[in-house]
Every structure is written in structure tokens, then in C-alpha cells.
Design a protein around this nucleic acid. Structure first.
Lengths: 343, 343
DNA sequence: CTGAACGTTGTAAGCGCTAACATCCGGATT
DNA sequence: AATCCGGATGTTAGCGCTTACAACGTTCAG
């Protein structure tokens, strides 16, 4: 029973023969303390095993070293990559991530925003530009910097980093058309509470119109995020429109699920059917044939968003406040090498 | 410029015609306040848009609603699943996750533990049973509940949830041997700062000895976590020991990288070479042939760990303090259906 | 009719730090 | 020698809440 109550700053101060403000200074502004004193204090910190109480520190200074991060789910590797990028920038700067998974529910997002704001984070990172009215009220009422990620097709509350899901999908459909396909199917992710998925669907539709392709609604499907759903929609679409030449999936997991199903059924890709995905997950380059897809800056979004938050925390001006990191079509063997220049 | 300083509890109290302690009670112990008063206070909260300052609350009450979670990386889906499990239990209970990624560095882990403890979390979740001396000092000095995850082969600081990596690997090797293989290669993950990987390697070696299999060191390789590294080690191993019958990879990503390489080279699996993995990621069931692997309770580890933390926070006793959630060999087509009963 | 017990609200104190200001000192300036 | 200045440290006063405990009116047993 030698575990006494936690060491406080005053205990360290007493041992070092200084007042507690000097200990505070050694820990927060070391250059404002004479070297000898500093060493004595540091020795006392070491000797006592003192761990500063940042709850008290934050209350007194009115600022925390915590950044809230909201993602739909941590289980989808694309968001894991983004969080990774955020953490790689934030941690060296002394900030910690408070994580919140909304489960693609705007309702849950609002609740999480409330809970996070109660912790008085130094900044907030959210996914997408679509939120509930209540969320907007909360976000607009706060003074802290906010970065919305993964979409630039819309108006951010404060700052935004991402790319145009709309243009990316438009570009891929254009690409498939240039390779000769006229009947191009699209398997969307659920578009409710997901502005990125919605923009992808709209981008497909617009491209179909712009290029005068076959616009049959039977060529459009919706699927939850899983390999299995990708395989299912493939079969449905093939049954409804046996003449479909290419199917574009709103994410790689769906596309790969379909690709694996093709392998099982002996459907030749791309000879019998071309398949394209979106996200360029690592696996896309590994499968056989390799998956044609849209490469997007998952990690970069996280880094850039974190940089913008930090800059604002430090009082800087962030201009422009919306950063489009772009995308890139990655041609692999799951689509025919068309008349378009190979990438 | 109508954005005044943040609403405080006192502002709400004044509007509701009560003292601030009553507001505090409405928010924290609603049943201790008369219904009429409660409604008046809640209306005032709504009207002012008050968001409690939990930094101040935590300082006064000396407890937070934050749980620190340390993982090697969030980028590996197995840890993402575990975090998901933790969050699914913790969030409904009103706790938030403070995330820390150690990057498989015990040094960084120690630093993160310090940083987290400074936030005075209500509990701590760590990965593995191996830590630096300094980390042990910190962990033993704190009063908060700690759960170490993903391993039960060792002595936890406080509580632990996981499975035996050693026995799981031993079992898989035994299984491969029962299917007729005598020359079984093993591709390990880097074992430095990773007790789970180390136990897996030891489990393989022990099984080789126990079963009297070919124990050539040339059958052992080490690979970083990537599809590419799996493919590379496959080729190296095949070059060094062309007579190898089966290769067991310490994780599914390595195994799948090798499987894809086999597809490219026309190596028939399992006729020419059997391949087994570890983790049972979703993809393992999708590829062709399906990957034989070890299914482990990734999500369940997170849930169980969170439950144990919660129970202790609420003053309960957790017994047993080490929970072995077990594992399961999943037979798929990448290994021959041997004399063993099919799963 | 008294007073113990309860439900409800308020008062006082302080959680462990840091911002702001005050103080002290030696040395440079005039 | 008087003055000023800047570096180093200390004093004071909170940050915005919650934990005691006190105070008040009601109710109800004896």
C-alpha cells in the first residue's frame, strides 16, 4: 500500500525547491527558465514520476491538445488510411486523436459532434459535406477549426480537403466509353447519408448522358459495402442486361467481389465483361487480372486536413480553404486496352 | 459579431432561475431534481445551445469519459476490427476513444502511454503483452484499469483478452501435417516489438519438432506486412527448397500475396503447393481457391476488452482477469482436403 | 403537536493547473 | 551614482465545473 495519491505539480516544485509555476514553465516553456533551475526541476519530475494533469492544464489555459476525428467507419481501409495520415501529422505536433465512428448515420454524427465538442477539442475533422441541420448549428457555433474531408463538391462549413467524386466517376465512364463500351453498368454504394456515394452516382449518370450511352435504369444497381454484394449485383445485372459490356463499381470491394465471382463462373475479364472499381485499394493491383480503378489520395487527404487544422490552431490563415487533391485513373487488365492512351 | 464567449453552466442556471449546481444535477443525475425544475433547466439548455465543458467537469470530479487505445497501426484491418469492437461497447456507455498508433515501436508506445495518462483516461487498452521497462513503470503506477489484447501467452500488467498465438500456429502446422505435408515452410512477420508474431513463430517451430517434420532453417522466412513481401518470400522459399509442400504464412496478407503470385506463375494451389494464412480476413473466403487460415476473434477481442474495462470502472471485480477467446482452423481449398475431418 | 426523515435546492470550497501581473536582481547606460 | 532594462521567479486569481454539506419545507409516525 505505498501507492499514495497521484503526484501533483506542487510536489515536484517542493522537491526542486521552486514554486509550481516554475515547474509549469519548465514543462511548457523551457526556454523561459534558467538552465540550472530547469535541470533541477526535470530531475524532480523524474524522481517523482510526475505525469502532468492535462485536464487541469487545459481548463486553466482554455485549450486542449486533442483533435476530434469523425469517420463513417474505421473498418473501411480507405478511412483507416485517412486517419493514419491525420495521425502522422498530428502526433508529432503533440496532438491526440479522439476517434468517432458514425456508422454512416447523420444522426449518430450529430450526437458525436456534441460529445466531442464537450471535450473542447482544438479542432474537428469530419467526413463529407453533408450533415444534419443540428450538426450545422453546432459546427457553426464553435470557434475551432473544422475540416471536412473526402469531398469538394459542395460548400464546407469551414475548410475542406478531398477530390471531386463526381468528376472522378465521370472520367472513368468516359474512359470506358473510349475503350469501346456503350452499355456500361454502375453499381452504387448506398447514397443515403453519403454525399461521396451520391456524387459518384451523379457523375456516372452525367457521363452516360454527355456521351450518349445506353441509359437504361436496369444498368444501375445499389449495393452495401462487401465482396458478396458486389458478386450479387454482378449476377443480377448480367441477368437483366446480358449485353452489358462493362460494369463500373463505386468502390473496389464491390468490384473485386464481382471479379472473384467472374473467376468462379469462368466469365473472362475483360473479354466477356470489363470491370472497373474506385479507390485503388492495395489489393486492386494484386488480383489477376489487375483491377482498373480510380486512385484517390486517401492518406494525403488525412495529412492535408491535419496540416490545415494545425495551421489554424497556430493562428495562421489557410488559403485556399478548399483543397482539391485530385484523382487518377489507373488502367489495369480488367478493362480492355482501348484507343485511349495507356496510363 | 454576435458570437459571444461560450455559454457556461451559470448562464443556463440564470435563465432557468436556479443555481448552477441544479443544472449540473439535471445533466448528471436527472432523478435527483424535481420534474418541473428539470424541464425548465432542459429548456434553458436548449435555448442557450449549452454544451457542457467536460474538461472542467473532469477536473472537478476527477474522472474522464475517455479511454485510451493503443494499437500498432490502424491500417491493418485486424486492429481496425478490434477498435471497432471496443467502440461499439464503449460509445453506448458514454465513453470516447483516444487513439494511439505505435507503429510497432515499443519506444513510441511508451511515449504514447505517457501522453495518454496525462489525459487521465478512465482506462487503457493496449496491444500485446510486451512493453518497455519504462512502460511497465507507468502502467503499474496508475490506478486505472488496463487491458492488454491479442495475446494470452504471458503475464499481463492487469487484465488481458486474446488467444494463444502459439497454440494457434501449432494447430495449423499439425493440420497441414495431417494432410500429408512433411516439408512445411513458415513465413513469419517481423518479431521485434511484436510478441504475437514471436509466439506464432515459436508455435510453428514447436510443432515441427513435436511432429518430427523437416526442420530446415531455409524453410523459415521473415516478411513485412504486404502482399508483395508474401509473393517475394514464396519465390525465395521455392528457390531454396523446391520440394516444399506447404507454406504457412503468419498472416493472410502475406498468404494472399503468395496465392496471387501462384496464379500469375501457374503454380497450382494446392496441387503443387499448399498455402495457409492466419487471421481469416474477409478476403480469404473470396479468393480462388479459398484460403485455409486461422480464424481469430478480432472484433470479439475489442468488445470483451471494452466490457472488462467498463466493469472495472464501475467498481466491479473482473474474474478471470485473463480471457482466452480461442481460435478456429478454417479449411478452404488452398490446402488439400487431408485425412483430417473437413471443417 | 413534536420532531425525525425525506426530498429538493443552495452555499462553500476546491479540483490542479496557467495567465497575468508583480517582484527581485545584476548589469548596462548615462 | 542614479536610472533603466531585461531575465528569472513568484504571487494572485481564476478556468467551469462537482463534491461535500447545509438549509429549507413537507410529511408522517408516535
Amino acid at each position: 500500500m505505498e501507492r499514495k495519491s497521484a503526484v501533483r505539480m506542487e510536489d515536484v516544485a517542493r522537491l526542486a525547491g521552486v514554486s509550481s509555476i516554475t515547474v509549469s514553465r519548465v514543462l511548457n516553456h523551457p526556454d523561459k527558465v534558467a538552465e540550472g533551475t530547469r535541470e533541477r526541476v526535470l530531475a524532480a519530475v523524474e524522481a517523482t514520476g510526475y505525469i502532468p494533469n492535462s485536464v487541469a492544464g487545459s481548463l486553466a489555459s482554455r485549450r486542449t491538445r486533442v483533435i476530434g476525428a469523425l469517420v463513417p467507419t474505421i473498418t473501411n481501409s480507405i478511412f483507416a488510411d485517412t486517419i493514419d495520415g491525420m495521425d502522422d501529422v498530428l502526433r508529432p505536433a503533440g496532438y491526440q486523436l479522439l476517434l468517432g465512428a458514425t456508422g454512416y448515420s447523420l444522426d449518430e454524427e450529430s450526437r458525436l459532434i456534441s460529445a466531442m465538442l464537450a471535450q473542447r477539442p482544438a479542432g474537428l475533422l469530419a467526413t463529407g459535406l453533408q450533415h444534419q441541420a443540428q450538426a450545422y448549428t453546432l459546427l457553426r457555433a464553435t470557434e475551432i477549426p473544422i475540416v471536412e474531408t473526402w469531398n469538394v463538391d459542395g460548400d464546407p462549413v469551414d475548410m475542406a480537403v478531398g477530390f471531386s467524386n463526381f468528376r472522378a466517376c465521370h472520367a472513368m465512364v468516359t474512359c470506358l466509353a473510349e475503350q469501346g463500351a456503350r452499355r456500361i453498368g454502375f453499381v452504387s454504394a448506398p447514397t443515403t447519408a453519403n454525399d461521396r456515394a451520391e456524387q459518384r452516382l451523379l457523375g456516372y449518370r452525367r457521363a452516360v448522358r454527355d456521351l450518349g450511352l445506353d441509359a437504361d435504369p436496369a444498368l444501375e444497381r445499389e449495393a452495401k459495402f462487401s465482396f458478396h454484394a458486389g458478386a450479387e449485383r454482378l449476377l443480377e445485372l448480367l441477368a437483366a442486361r446480358p449485353d452489358v459490356e462493362a460494369i463500373f463499381f463505386a468502390n473496389d470491394i464491390l468490384a473485386l467481389g464481382a471479379l472473384f465471382e467472374c473467376q468462379r463462373r469462368g466469365i473472362r475479364v475483360p473479354e466477356d465483361l470489363a470491370i472497373a472499381g474506385f479507390d485503388d485499394v492495395e489489393l486492386a493491383a494484386q488480383v489477376n487480372p489487375g483491377l482498373t480503378t480510380v486512385r484517390i489520395p486517401r492518406y494525403g487527404i488525412g495529412r492535408q486536413a491535419a496540416h490545415m487544422i494545425l495551421r489554424r490552431i497556430e493562428g495562421g490563415v489557410v488559403d485556399p480553404s478548399v483543397v482539391d487533391l485530385g484523382f487518377e485513373i489507373v488502367q489495369r487488365a480488367s478493362t480492355p486496352a482501348g484507343s485511349a492512351a495507356p496510363a
